[in-house]
Amino acid sequence: MQFSRRNFFKFMGVAGASVAALPSSARAWKSKAPPDSYGCLVDLTRCVGCRKCEEACSEVNKLPAPERADCQCTIFDRKRRPDDKAYTVVNRYFTGKLDQFDNPLPTYAKVQCMHCQDPSCVSACLAGALTKDETGAVKYDVSRCIGCRYCMVACPFEIPAYEYHNPITPKVMKCTFCYDRISEQGGLPGCATICPTEALTFGKRKTILKVAQKRLKENPGKYIDYVYGEKEVGGTSWLYISSVPFEKVNLPALPNKPLPKLSETIQHSLFSYLWSPLALFGVLGAVMYKSNKVQEEPQNKGGA
């Protein structure tokens, strides 16, 4: 192999210049949460388990009708998860609470995409098929998706579902927050429109967070004094308040730090302006140049 000295210096010069042009320190990680996004408050004490939200959701999003839409008893025997045919499902939990006749009191909990303020899935998607909208909705653009399912790996709430039985054009399926409806003036998500007891309160996230806190304050003893989703993974658009511990209704305990923070910090401090690869390239080039020169010289003397 010929190792041209001129080429090497030319290349190294360019590489060195780009490294020098770097800002000395990588910028600190900042939340990219939209400033005035919408949110939705789920008050589990108000939910009666009518499953109308499931029905409205599938109607609005043109999904198949929910499994046994009218059933409010045996369907709850099995714990369901949102999947490729349903963006939201309601589950029933018996948490040990009793009513005045000593019958176990059910708690119903709706599950759907939480629309995180700093979503892991958005950070994970390599082609930017998932984006965080100004409305707060985490939008999915199938035209960019390659189907790697990294979003599903990343999601701490296990929400994105996959059309595993579509061989060529499968899609990631998840709650859309009805963004085309809510981006219109006065628009509501399908589920919040139909909820008969207003267990779902839709509004600006800031406003409904205040509503939630007020409700906790005004009803001491009724609720657990905590708004789930206020701080979880840096905050979510959907918030929950409940009279039973959140783990008991399958809302996982999560760190308060936005999950993409660590990996994005590492990525950007190492690779912004490609400074570290260029530096490595330079160092290795120098080593290669030096080690080859050392070995070439005796050969040259030998008249090769």
């Binding site: 108000r46 909820c195 007891t197 207003e198 309160t201 839709f202 406003t207 409700r215």
Partner: peptide
Amino acid sequence: SFNPDHPERIGIKAAYHQQCVKCHT
């Protein structure tokens, strides 16, 4: 429902349902 000026005030449908279901239960 969801009147931004009175966010804590529930709508008429929810008022009916909460009142009826609570009492009937």
